[in-house]
Design a protein around this nucleic acid. Structure first.
Length: 507
RNA sequence: GGCCCGUUGGUCAAGGGGUUAAGACGCAUCCCUUUCACGGAUGAAUCACGAGUUCGAUUCUCGUACGGGCUACCA
C-alpha cells in the first residue's frame, strides 16, 4: 500500500458556494498529493438530482483556479479514471449493490416515503427521538427480508420503486485507524441500514464513495469530521466489496467553526466576513454571498490562513508560501480539535502578504478597484510606486482606494476642521512663502522639499510640527498617508502647489 | 435521547510526566514616528473539573461537565 502512487480526491457536490472548510479540504488534499508526488483528483458528487444547481460545478473549478489548487484529474483536466462526474458513472453502481444482496449484506426495501414517515412517527419516543431503519425496525417494514421470495420477485419484475439498503450486522465492532485521531470504533448494532441505491437508480454517497474510491485507486481519503459517524458503513462496504487491504487510509479533518458551531454562510452574513472562496450567486433566489476573493484577499493569504487553521509545522513560522506548505505539510501535525475561524487574524494574514509581495502582483486588481470608483489610471509606473508606498497600511485590497486615491485625484473634501482651531495669520504667511519657494524649486524631490520647508519654518519661528499637519491635510485631505514630502514628490510640483493654494482659500 | 469526536489565555496554537506553559491574532500601555501605519517593548492562563497512577501531572487512565458533529431515498 505504501509503495503505491499516492492518489487523493476532493469530492464536492455542486450545490452552492465553496466554503472555507471545503477549500481547506482541497488544500490538504493538494498539499498531501504534491508532497508525495501524487495525484490530486476532483470528483463531482452529483448523485442527488434534486439538489442540482446550475453553475455550481463551474464555480468550484473557478475557485480552485483562483486559489491555485488545480487538480491533476477531473472533468475538465481529464485523466484515465473517468468519468469524474458520478452521474455519468450511474451504470456502474448497481452491480455492486446487487453483489451485496447476493452475498447477504444488503436487501431491497419497498417502503414508500409515507411508510417511512409513519414508522418514524410511530416509533418515536422520548427515549428515542429519531428512530432509525435498523435491525429492530427493518423486520416491520416491507423489504426482501420480510417479504417472500415470490413477492419480492413480483415487485421487482413490475418495476416497483425500491431502494437497496445495507444490512448492518448485529454486535460487531467496526474499527479503523484514522490518520488524525488514531483508532476509532463503532458498535454496528447502533448504526442504521443506510440506503445504498436510491429509487431513482442513483447510488447514495455511501455506495458511490466506496466504489469510486476503489475504481479511482484512491490511497488516502480526506473528508470533514461530519463524516465520521457514517464511516462504519463505508468500512463495511469496503470489507464486503473490495477487501480492507484495498481501502484508502482515512483522515477526518476537524471542522472549521463559526461564532456558533459549524460555519454557515449565515454566520458570514451576520458577522460581516466571507465564508465562500469567491462570490456566489444563488441562481434561484439571486442572493449574492460574498467571497474572499472579492472581499480583497490575496490567494497567497487565503491559502496560508487556511493551512494553519488546524495545522502547523511545529515551529513559530506562520507565513508560508504554497511551495513551503507542500514541502512541510504532514498529516501528523493536523490538529484533532475543531478551530474557530477568526476573521481578524485572516485579515492579518492578508496584510502580511500585501506587504510581502511586490505591488505589481496585485496591481491589476487594485487598478480595477480604482476604476470602479471612477479613477482611471493611465500611469502604471506611478501606480506601482504609490502602492509600494502605502501597502503597509492596507489589510484588504479595497483599502488601497482609501489609502492611495488622493495620488490620482484631488480629495472631494479636506478635513479643515483639523487645521482651523490652531490656524493663524503667521501660518497663512508661512504657507504663502512655501508656495513661492516651491514654485521656484528646481529639484523636486522629498528631501529637498522637506529641507526647504523646515528652513522656512525656522526662519518664521514656527515649529515644523505646527505646519506639517496642515500641509498633510492640504495634500491628502485627511490625517493619514505616508510621509508628506514623499507624497508631494509623487504628486508633482504643479499639483502640490495647486492643492496648497486651494486649501488656503478654504481657511 | 443515542452514537462519535473534541477540550492549553477572547481566538489560532507549541509543548505530551519535572518548563519562568513558546509564539501569533486581538486588546491595553509605552517607545519610535510632529498624521495614519510599519517596527519595537511591556501586560494579562491556578493548561474545563474530580478521582486514580506516580516521588512528581497541563502531559498517562477513568469518570463528570462543557463544546461540536451525526442520527434523510443530502452530501
Amino acid at each position: 500500500m505504501s509503495d503505491k502512487k499516492v492518489r487523493v480526491r476532493f469530492a464536492p457536490s455542486p450545490t452552492g458556494g465553496l466554503h472555507l472548510g471545503g477549500v481547506r479540504t482541497v488544500l490538504y488534499n493538494y498539499l498531501f498529493a504534491k508532497h508525495n508526488n501524487g495525484v490530486f483528483i476532483l470528483r463531482i458528487e452529483d448523485t442527488d438530482q434534486s439538489r442540482f444547481v446550475p453553475g455550481a460545478e463551474a464555480y468550484i473549478f473557478d475557485c480552485l483556479k483562483w486559489a491555485g489548487l488545480e487538480p491533476d484529474e477531473s472533468v475538465i483536466h481529464g485523466g484515465n479514471y473517468g468519468p469524474y462526474r458520478q452521474s455519468e458513472r450511474k451504470a456502474q453502481y448497481r452491480q455492486y449493490a446487487e453483489k451485496l444482496i447476493a452475498d447477504g449484506y444488503a436487501y431491497y426495501a419497498f417502503d414508500s416515503p409515507e411508510e417511512l414517515e409513519k414508522m418514524r412517527i410511530d416509533c418515536k419516543t422520548d427515549q428515542n427521538p429519531s428512530p432509525q431503519y435498523d435491525r429492530f425496525t427493518r423486520s416491520k417494514m416491507r423489504n426482501s427480508l420480510t417479504l417472500s421470495f415470490e413477492e419480492v420477485s413480483k415487485l421487482l419484475s413490475t418495476d416497483t420503486p425500491h431502494v437497496i439498503r445495507i444490512k448492518m450486522p448485529e454486535n460487531e465492532v467496526v474499527s479503523f485507524t484514522d490518520m488524525i485521531r488514531g483508532e476509532v470504533s463503532f458498535d454496528t448494532s447502533l448504526v442504521d441500514d443506510k440506503v445504498l441505491m436510491k429509487a431513482d437508480g442513483m447510488p447514495t454517497y455511501h455506495l458511490a464513495v466506496v466504489v469510486d474510491d476503489y475504481l479511482m485507486q484512491i490511497t488516502h481519503a480526506f473528508r470533514g469530521e461530519e463524516w465520521l459517524p457514517s464511516s462504519p458503513v463505508h468500512i463495511l462496504l469496503w470489507k464486503y466489496l473490495f477487501g480492507l487491504n484495498a481501502m484508502p487510509q482515512w483522515a477526518h479533518l476537524p471542522l472549521i467553526l463559526g461564532p456558533n458551531g459549524k460555519l454557515s454562510k449565515r454566520d458570514g452574513a451576520k458577522y460581516g466576513f466571507p465564508v465562500f472562496a469567491m462570490n456566489w450567486t444563488d441562481p434561484k433566489t439571486g442572493e449574492l454571498t460574498e467571497g474572499f476573493k472579492e472581499k480583497g484577499f490575496l490567494k497567497e493569504a487565503f491559502i496560508n490562513l487556511l493551512a494553519v487553521l488546524g495545522w502547523n509545522d511545529g515551529t513559530e513560522q506562520e507565513i508560508f508560501a504554497k511551495e513551503q506548505l507542500i514541502e512541510k505539510f504532514s498529516i501528523e501535525r493536523i490538529h484533532s480539535g475543531g478551530a474557530r475561524f477568526d476573521y481578524e487574524k485572516a485579515k492579518w494574514f492578508n496584510h502580511e502578504w500585501i506587504k510581502k509581495l511586490p505591488a505589481t502582483d496585485y496591481m491589476p486588481e487594485v487598478k480595477q478597484l480604482f476604476e470602479q470608483k471612477g479613477i482611471v489610471i493611465t500611469d502604471e509606473n506611478k501606480l506601482s510606486k504609490v502602492l509600494e508606498l502605502v501597502k503597509e497600511r492596507c489589510h484588504l485590497l479595497p483599502d488601497f482606494v482609501q489609502q492611495a486615491s488622493f495620488f490620482f485625484s484631488r480629495p472631494d473634501s479636506f478635513d479643515t476642521d483639523a487645521i482651523k482651531p490652531k490656524w493663524n495669520e503667521a501660518k497663512r504667511l508661512f504657507f504663502a512663502e512655501i508656495v513661492r519657494n516651491f514654485e521656484l524649486t528646481g529639484l523636486w524631490n522629498a528631501p529637498e522639499l522637506e529641507h526647504n520647508f523646515k528652513e522656512i519654518a525656522a526662519a518664521n519661528q514656527i515649529k515644523p510640527g505646527e505646519v506639517l499637519l496642515p500641509l498633510r491635510i492640504m495634500l491628502v485631505g485627511g490625517k493619514f498617508g505616508p510621509h508628506v514630502f514623499d507624497i508631494a514628490q509623487i504628486l508633482g510640483k504643479e499639483e502640490t502647489i495647486a492643492r496648497i493654494k486651494l486649501v488656503l482659500s478654504l481657511l
